[in-house]
Design a protein around this nucleic acid. Structure first.
Length: 325
DNA sequence: TACCAGGTAAAAA
DNA sequence: TTTTTACATGGT
C-alpha cells in the first residue's frame, strides 16, 4: 500500500501540468472588499475534524461530487485586493469537473461573489448601520454548501442555546457523516440526506436531539433522498414569501427555521429571522437601548434596510459579539 | 436546583 | 378557535 502511493507520486512528478493524486491547489479572487479573517472568525473554536478557523487557516470537510474532501483555505491578499489559496485533499483523484465544483463550494461558503458595495451604499442613510459597516468593512456572511445542511442545522438550533445545539451538531456529523482519513487523521463531512434518512430514531436521539427533532430530521432527509423534496430549487425563487410558505408546509419547519435556512443556505440577504431571540437582543442593543423587542418590532426596524435587512442583521450580530458600540 | 436558551407541533381548554 | 405544554442539552 505505501509503495503503491509512492509509485503514483513518482509517476506524476515528471509532468508539472498534472496534479498529484487527490491533491489540488486553487487560487481564488473574491469580489472586493473581502476581509477573510473577519469573515472566518465566526468559525474559530470549531471542531478541526469538521470545520474550524485558527486565525490563519480555515478548514472544512465538504463533499465534492460525492467524495469527501478536506478544504484548507488561506488568505493571500488584502481586503481591497483579496485572494485565497485553497488546498484540496482527497483519497481519490480529483478531476477538472471536481475542481470546478470545489470552486463553487468555496464561493458559496464565504459568499465570495457577493458585492458589498451596494449594501454599504444603502446603509449610509442609517447612522447606526453606517458606523457598524465601517467597523466591519469586508465582512461577508458565511453560507452552507447545500440548502439541506442549512435546514438541518436550523432545526437543531430551535429553542435551545446555540452552545447546546452545536454540541448536538458535532455529534450528528461524527455519527452519520462519512469519515475521511488523511495523513493519519480523521475528518467528517456533513451527512447526506441518504445517510440521515438511514439513521434510526434512537441513534439520532443519542446525539442529544429531542424525539421530535429526530423525527423532523429523519423525515425531511427521507423526502430529500427520495427526490420528493428538492431544496435546491428554492435558489431560483424570486419571492421570499413563497419560499417561507412552502418550507412551512413541512413538519418541523416554521417561519423562524425557514428564514434561518434562507439566509444561511440560500444566500438570501433579504431574509431576517425576526423572531430570533439573539437577533432581538442584538438589534435592541443598537436601536432600542437594550429594551425587549418583539419580532414584529424587529421587522419594523429592519424595514429601513430594505432588501439588505438580512445582511444588516448579520452585521449587527457580529458587531454585538465583538463588543462594538 | 432551578431556569433559561436564535421554536414547533400537538394536546387541552 | 385559542392557549398551554413537552421537549433536549449546556451554562449560570
Amino acid at each position: 500500500m505505501p509503495s503503491k502511493s509512492l509509485r503514483a507520486k513518482r509517476s506524476k512528478r515528471g509532468s508539472a501540468r498534472r496534479h498529484k493524486e487527490g491533491r489540488v491547489r486553487l487560487t481564488m479572487k473574491p469580489v472586493p472588499p473581502f476581509d477573510f479573517d473577519l469573515s472566518a472568525m465566526i468559525f474559530s473554536g470549531g471542531d478541526p475534524q469538521i470545520r474550524s478557523y485558527d486565525g490563519d487557516i480555515y478548514c472544512h470537510i465538504l463533499r465534492v461530487n460525492g467524495k469527501p474532501v478536506l478544504f484548507t483555505i488561506k488568505s493571500t491578499g488584502t481586503v481591497d485586493e483579496p485572494g485565497l489559496s485553497v488546498e484540496l485533499k482527497s483519497r481519490e483523484e480529483l478531476s477538472p469537473a471536481d475542481k470546478k465544483v470545489a470552486r463553487q463550494s468555496v464561493n458559496l461558503l464565504l459568499n465570495l461573489d457577493m458585492d458589498l458595495e451596494p449594501f454599504y451604499k444603502a446603509m449610509r442613510k442609517d447612522p447606526i448601520m453606517a458606523r457598524v459597516v465601517k467597523n466591519l468593512y469586508g465582512l461577508k456572511s458565511p453560507t452552507t454548501p447545500t440548502v439541506f445542511e442549512a435546514l438541518i442545522d436550523s432545526i437543531t438550533e430551535q429553542q435551545i442555546s446555540l452552545v447546546a445545539a452545536h454540541s448536538m451538531q458535532r455529534k450528528l456529523i461524527r455519527a452519520f457523516g462519512e469519515k475521511l482519513k488523511l495523513d493519519g487523521k480523521s475528518y467528517f463531512a456533513f451527512p447526506t440526506p441518504e445517510e440521515l434518512a438511514r439513521a434510526s430514531l434512537p441513534s439520532l436521539r443519542e446525539c442529544g436531539l429531542s424525539g421530535r427533532k429526530s423525527e423532523y430530521i429523519k423525515d425531511i432527509s427521507a423526502l430529500v433522498a427520495a427526490g420528493t423534496l428538492d431544496l435546491e430549487k428554492f435558489k431560483a425563487y424570486k419571492s421570499s414569501e413563497d419560499i417561507i410558505d412552502e418550507l412551512c408546509k413541512i413538519r418541523g419547519i416554521g417561519v423562524w427555521t425557514s428564514e434561518m435556512t434562507m439566509i444561511r443556505g440560500l444566500q438570501r440577504m433579504d431574509a431576517i429571522p425576526a423572531d430570533d431571540l439573539g437577533l432581538r437582543v442584538n438589534i435592541s442593543h443598537f436601536y432600542r437601548k437594550g429594551e425587549r423587542l418583539t419580532g414584529e418590532q424587529l421587522r419594523e426596524i429592519a424595514e429601513r434596510w430594505g432588501k439588505w435587512r438580512g445582511l444588516a442583521g448579520y452585521y449587527l450580530l457580529v458587531a454585538y459579539r465583538m463588543g462594538l458600540d
